[in-house]
Design a protein around this nucleic acid. Structure first.
Lengths: 107, 107
DNA sequence: TTTTATAATCGTAATATTGCAATATTACGA
DNA sequence: TCGTAATATTGCAATATTACGATTATAAAA
């Protein structure tokens, strides 16, 4: 057990949960918020700002990146992580439409 | 380790992640979708419809309910779970405003 | 080339989550 | 009250997630 049974659900249902999962950890929300507020951002900034180890921040960043939410421009030693606004906006619309189409018919 | 360090984040950040967590499992998304499509809904319907055991469905339901997303009208043995639209709409607005206020300044 | 700074990866420990069988509880009807 | 149907809870096994120290990889600077 302990394995989420994704195969019993539709692609749409799985997509919603996959998107939500990215935002289900406060560190990842904080990382996105911080990146969005900076002109540019390297991982070390995040370590100081958020208060988790470099390894942990890096792990969370890769989760966010794997979801397609980051564009990384390598600038020498440092790295400029930027939010992929196309994907981000896409996620917003998908979640928002899920909320809007979910109504209550009883009570 | 293994414990999410919530205390290092702001209430706002934690709120976003807490809301997202409810939707981060496909079974919970499926439950909400199914409830929204029915005139009324008892747990047994969900077991047949979703394909998880009664115990598992009941657990997911309590996660959704704990978040404030359900209004349960007990009708004798059976139970009519309904979506709490006030909370649901509130969650939609909170998430949507998070997305809207998160911009990209570089790249 | 060596050093230095930065970020990714590895390995591991701890906790959380998922799922289900078994059992308990609840509420109704006979 | 007894039996039954519906849902909740408990206990447990398996897997996932979180976090971090240590190590590695990479690229600029000395």
């Amino acid at each position: 057990m302990g394995v989420t049974k994704r195969f019993i659900h539709s692609d749409y249902i799985n997509q919603i949960s996959t998107i939500a999962k990215v935002f289900s950890h406060p560190a990842r929300v904080a990382i996105l918020k911080h990146i969005s507020e900076q002109e540019q951002c390297i991982c070390n900034d995040l370590v100081d700002e958020i208060g988790l180890s470099q390894a942990t921040i890096s792990q969370h960043l890769s989760v966010i990146a794997d979801a397609g939410l980051l564009k990384g421009t390598f600038q020498g030693k440092a790295k400029c992580y930027c939010i992929n606004l196309e994907t981000f906006e896409n996620f917003r619309e998908i979640l928002n439409s899920f909320f809007i189409t979910t109504k209550s018919n009883c009570c």
